[in-house]
Design a protein around this nucleic acid. Structure first.
Lengths: 177, 177
DNA sequence: CAGCATTATGCAATTTGTTGCATATCAAGT
DNA sequence: ACTTGATATGCAACAAATTGCATAATGCTG
């Protein structure tokens, strides 16, 4: 049940609507968490009923109203308690690897297409992350200090995506041979 | 619903019991799939009711009996159909990154412990994978050809674990400074 | 021989996540 | 005017995963 904690973490930095959270998970935080809008709205509802978060409705010019959520004290407490608990190891479930393992059942062109598609996706993510890294590098010393930990999570994204690309190149090379 | 396909893939290579599958997911296939024993046994049951797999009970000396599952023709068909379908992008849910993002709420020593623990785990995985790679490299040309695709999935493990270690070192360096 | 780990299997309750559907506002293009 | 796309929210049915419990045989260690 860690979507809860991912949301608490984001709200701790800044108040957001469900839609804001969705967009963050889809873009710059895509590396460490993914969730659908249905999941997010449902989670926000249940967190509100647990009084971990509060909201107010904000009217916007040129856009529909939104519900902006903020942490309550209980929410802050729950987050800091969670941060102090040790984690168990994360699960890996990578369907592409399963598919490649069973790849003799598909034809080479299909695998190649899947792999180049995979490579393109990760290249796109890497570019996004590198752009954010540039922003960070150009920020003031004070900002850098404040953002040091988020920056390290970004580094995970960059290093991980680079690894994806290196591997994809190996596989594509093999499939071409 | 891809545990199903992961299991079909493994059974396509060799017949196995639920426990065998569990052990594979925990060790050499840990990189690409994880599942609990409850999940595996339940999945096998449902796949058997769908007639994708068959089993026979095998008595063992010095160990409890086991149910050894094999693919049926329908199972083979389902697998090769799945391999031919394009995948959607995998989800990432990395609680360690969430925690690091919110790391200012924990104390440095705790984060350090979490990170060194993470590093150790991934070092252990990397060592396992490297040992398997050695085996592969020492196998015959014929074997190498047969195992080419599984070997590429192993490479994903190696490259990915190395990336984990590189990143962990960056973070640990930072936390020490 | 008592206690613990490993092998081997499973059920039931609950929590999470997915899929499909539904609604509504506003901007921009055709 | 009409359609498409982005913003913004949500419900309901279903599938999948987690957690807790339960059983049973065997091997090993003290």
């Amino acid at each position: 049940m860690s979507l809860k904690h991912a949301i608490l973490t984001l709200l701790e930095t800044e108040e957001s609507s469900g839609y804001d959270l969705l967009k963050q998970f889809q873009s710059r935080l895509g590396y460490f968490w993914n969730a659908s809008h249905q999941q997010i709205y449902a989670q926000l509802k249940s967190m509100h009923s647990e009084q971990l978060i509060d909201f107010h409705v904000e009217a916007q010019a040129n856009k529909p109203d939104k519900k902006v959520y903020t942490l309550t004290q209980a929410g802050r407490d729950a987050l800091s308690e969670w941060v102090q608990q040790p984690l168990k190891l994360g699960k890996v479930n990578d369907a592409l690897l399963v598919k490649l393992y069973a790849g003799h059942l598909a034809d080479k062109d299909q695998l190649l297409e899947e792999m180049t598609n995979y490579r393109d996706n990760h290249q796109r993510m890497l570019n996004t992350f590198l752009a954010i890294e540039e922003e960070y590098k150009n920020s003031s010393a004070k900002e850098k200090k404040n953002l040091a930990l988020p920056y390290l999570t970004l580094r995970r994204g960059i290093i991980g995506e680079q690894a994806c690309l290196d591997w994809a190149d190996e596989v594509i090379d093999f499939l071409h041979s």
